[in-house]
Amino acid sequence: MEMITAFFFASLATMAFAILFQAPKKIVLIDGIIGAIGWVVFIYLRHELGYTSFVSNFTATISLALASELSSRIFKQPVTVFVIPGIVPLVPGLGIYQGMFAIINNDYNNGTSILLTAMTDSVAIAIGVMLVSSLFRVIKVRRFMLQYRRSKRQMEMKVKGKK
């Protein structure tokens, strides 16, 4: 039941953020599902299995990045359209706020450690996104180079024909 509530609210939040980032209209619902996948994986690893925050964020990001690569192939859209709204539920807003609140109350020890945790979390998210996207970029670049060689050969043929 807890998971269903988490899924619902995470998809609601992600859809709202997709509208905030002006995503294409037919994509908004898919964005919601992708963001909810990431959040549910995070909640499960963090609260049920008790992994550290870094590992949970990393795994959640990898799962949502894989889902968005898959849907970018299906819906013929760039990956950015799915990834940017999808990572929003994982962004450590609570950590940033708590750290800042501790620092303005002159509690520098707590504040710095909370802010540092938030920073490692965001680095985990970024590494997860980059890992998956660079993996898929290799495939894409190879396909483009094949296409480029073919078009170059055609151009050379055309130039020869003109002479």
Binding site: F17, L20, V88, V91, G93, I96, S122, V123, M130
Partner: peptide
Amino acid sequence: ALMPFVPGVPFCNGLR
């Protein structure tokens, strides 16, 4: 209320 203004997107784009 903070979340719409947190610059998660520029940060992630920068790391990419």
